[in-house]
Design a protein around this nucleic acid. Sequence first.
DNA 1: TTGTACGCGTTATCAG
DNA 2: CTGATAACGCGTACAA
Lengths: 337, 337
Amino acid sequence: MSDGPTITTIAQRAGVSIASVSRVLNGLPTKADTERRVMSAARELGYVPNSAARSLKSRRSNQLGFAMADIGNPVYLAMIREIQPLFKAAGYRLVLHSTNVDEADEIDVLRGLGERYIDGLIMVPLRVTAEHLNMFAAARAPIVIIGSVPEGTPVDNVRTDSRKGVRLAVGHLHALGRRRIGFVNGPVDTVPGAARSAAYAEALPALGLPYDPSLVEVGDFYRTDGARAVARLLEREPDLDALLCANDLIALGALDVLRRAGRRVPQDVAVAGMDDTDLATIAWPALTSVSMGSAERGRAAAELLLDRLDNGRRAPRVVTVEPRLVVRASTTGEETP
Amino acid sequence: MSDGPTITTIAQRAGVSIASVSRVLNGLPTKADTERRVMSAARELGYVPNSAARSLKSRRSNQLGFAMADIGNPVYLAMIREIQPLFKAAGYRLVLHSTNVDEADEIDVLRGLGERYIDGLIMVPLRVTAEHLNMFAAARAPIVIIGSVPEGTPVDNVRTDSRKGVRLAVGHLHALGRRRIGFVNGPVDTVPGAARSAAYAEALPALGLPYDPSLVEVGDFYRTDGARAVARLLEREPDLDALLCANDLIALGALDVLRRAGRRVPQDVAVAGMDDTDLATIAWPALTSVSMGSAERGRAAAELLLDRLDNGRRAPRVVTVEPRLVVRASTTGEETP
DNA sequence: TTGTACGCGTTATCAG
DNA sequence: CTGATAACGCGTACAA
């Protein structure tokens, strides 16, 4: 009841030295008799090794971290679902950090690496500032970044081709005959916001369509913000016939607003999201969405981290995940009433 | 680059003893000059205290655990969203365990408490076996269980009133004039499955309706399993006019099947879910659902744990969260086309 | 094969 | 106010 048993307790009980106890528990060659006595003493006392002591000695925590902005976002959830089993299988616990869109929080997490409570970290930063880069360079544990970082940054990196993703979606809408394709983005000073904004601006001219800034509206990456942004856009450009939303949450907001406005989806306005989260198949009509390979990115990041942990000095690696368009009713209308 | 600086490094650099360094870093009274020298040495070296050493000495890990069956389930997500900020605000990191419906995994997590890598644990067990109860009693760190445990179990406990929840839903359907109310459950040997099953069997007679076993179908707590179960039920009882689903995922499956079968919701069949997750407002028609207060339960659990951590020897406490019916279109049809 | 002794990095006690 | 020094629990040379 009081304090947990230690190897010293066991040693006394078994009448051997703590060294012998340690050897038995670590499976080193030991005389059969000693082994038996130690094992039974350990069992009787309900011995469990103390992780702090073990970590201090071994210089390993057997913990790995995952840091993202917001657990509520299903994109991160998709990543965690892949990461957690891989970590567990490799004998690591998962420490979760939700940084709440707070840049200082992200930096804190990076600084925390120095405490050595985790042996490595996967981070999905919303922004990559100079301070981030400094911390990456100074980090005393391996880091994998999901999202693009500048060439030469000394971290493993998993990216996705936003350009191609947006091109797929815009191309799809264009092929369906849509010509007034609005774009609802999140904050453009975030990694995904900036990438998707640039990609949209490129994709239209490539199809011979003009880039019209008044077809672009910026809110935040959430459903209600998205809805508000779509409402503004609709008021300004009532003749638009398609909407590309920078993520699925925004697209859900778009469906809400369009429904309330009496516009049919997709007959009047075709809607496409990005990220292809679980929500896409729950929405009605089911949401066409560009999969940015969230699950694959999570898995790739975990694999990179685990690989580096037993292969410390290889060069930083970059893995790029291919986006993929998943067509559903919100653009083709096959199931719409 | 090589190994991180320790208080010894700082002591050498500042020309003082490690004791002085420790005192300065812990804010104990120190001569201004020593303090300055220590602080600047620490800053220059980029010192960060080692958490393993600190834990070994202090016997605290500054970590708390949350264990649930499946991160993919939005119910747990709702809990995590409440738990994480509270833990963080109290200075604890969050260690996440997804036990994958594996009973042995749950026991492993409990056993892991002995390693002292967490100072406390919130667990949502799917089943509560004798082994669980043994581990609860033997645990060397505080545990909060979400879900009912037997009277006298030495853990803090957050429960919800399933009986009342089911009664609310069935009462609502009955008040709408529905008389053939099917029930689609998950496995009845789980904590929620058993509770909801018993509650359904009680609720009907209380309204003067007969309990008809052939109106009950069991699958699993997922969308596709739910869909299959609903399909079986519909085939067997084509005249049912309402469906109560034991969680929202099952209810989504029900919507899929009903739509495919050409049954209108709610005109032909009214559908209600349980848990009132985010999915309920995304579905179409929006899902009437019984909120089991997931967010509140998460918050209550976190508060109980934090309270106990600085108030070790109070009696175990039981918090009960009231269910609440959230009526939406899937039963009243107000927004249905 | 086994035991003794030391170090991992911190905190805390006890003389000076 | 400061500096030795002893824990914390474990692993491991080194010596027996």
